[in-house]
Write a protein that binds this DNA or RNA. Sequence first.
RNA 1: CGGGACGUAGCACAGCUUGGUAGUGCGCUACCUUGGGGUGGUAGAGGUCUCGGGUUCAAAUCCCGACGUUCCGACCA
Length: 479
Amino acid sequence: MANVKNKNDAITPRDEDFAQWYTDVCRKAELMDYTSVKGFITYLPYGYAIWEQIQKELDIRFKEAGAENVYLPMVIPTSLFNKEKEHIDGFAPETLVATIGGGEELADPLIIRPTSEVLFSDLYKKLVSSYRDLPKRFNQWCSVVRWEKTTRPFLRGSEFLWQEGHCLFETQKEAEENTLKMLSIYDEVGRDVLGIPFVKGKKTEHEKFAGAVATYTIEALMHDGKALQAGTSHYFGQGFAEAFGIRFLGRNNALETPHQTSWGVSTRLIGAVIMVHGDDNGLVLPPKVAPIQVIIVPIRQEAEGILPKCQEIANCLKKQGIRAKIDDSDHTPGWKFAQWEMKGVPLRIEIGPRDLAEGHLMLSKRYNGEKLVLPIEEAEASLPKVLDAIQEEMYQKAKAHLERSVVDVDSIETLNAALEKGGYARMAFCGGEECELKIKEITKGGTARAIYKEEVPEGTLCPVCGKPATMVVYFAKAY
RNA sequence: CGGGACGUAGCACAGCUUGGUAGUGCGCUACCUUGGGGUGGUAGAGGUCUCGGGUUCAAAUCCCGACGUUCCGACCA
């Protein structure tokens, strides 16, 4: 494997080569491994465990919002897929298609789902016939396949794990509310679980989802100043419903067409966590997503009373629902420190003979290296609070980084200079696709990430075409 | 899809120019030693040199092709 260093070598410094640093962390924190098919990765236990935490936190909130989990097939007949024109045009170039089954060529080749709008539409057509059947709020945890040309672990894969929620409503108002509600859940999970602040807003015409009326997004800021689309929520209007013939008898006994939404986040969130919080010593996980929240490292573990004390502390943490682990392997303490730092465990406890004699524990916070001395009798009450504090501090740190990066600009030159530096630049423009493309060309990759607001001061002109500006948009270079 | 780099033990690499018995470091196994920031030592196990063709008495090494990884760009909700 080219460019992947020995597990015991230091990883590439983050500010020296961010892309290489990212790859090093993915490999050395044992989150994933490559496989023999391009763009398809193995999610190793530690990486998958992070995904399970994310799933758990999202799933609870989805269900509170009325969603029910379902599972639909992973293949879509080509004939069905072709029903919504904009949608096919968006996805056709990146589909993987099965053409042979049981040795026989298939009359209607099967598309491995790149997303399941058409399957859900086809299902809803069967399930919905009255306003009494609405709303429908289905969610599916699955993987999807998109034949990507450039792939990177977690950020863009040929196959990735995600959830896709697909809802159907009687009215436009309900559907639009649902679109924003799900976006707010993503935002909340970012804040409370991932420790990631987002720039939120509607996508421009050019950036919105194939087949959507409106797409809303949460955009994170990576440490290197590039943006990452972390989740989207779409309002589809009645487009899919019309294309697939979903209709219901309304309250007034007239046939009506429902309004549809969809929303999704993927294992890309793992990539976001790595790139927002990670540092030169490896991964840094916020407590809420960490598979191991507290690692207990015994010092001179063969000495009398050390391991029993570790066990006692671990049990007391587990009782409180904290994911704690004792590393009683026969590596040296120094090795263990480096190892668990690489894996991003948010809090380390050291217990040695000296500590026992003096009645305290040594704590070390992963995200800033801060060391604390804690009297043993306070451990039970204090440790959960320390974890909560770490969660909050990590969010605040990332939020400060995001807020510092946002600048307001009003010309191509100032936009270019801002994007060159990294971060988000807010600029008023006309909202036209042509101007957006020009901006991308001039700034070498700057794209409209999200609309900040759809009103501008009287007389503001688009810096590209000179026509009246209609919106203020967050621009950034993105992954 | 275009350009660059790379593919040899679990991992990182040397060997290739000038073809001739498969090497180093880390990791792994056993034992000793050490232990509050990747201890030190001794002995071991581990390889169809990515794959497919070709040249040759002989290919990790030379030639052609495929695949994969990686970086940059284009493309991408």
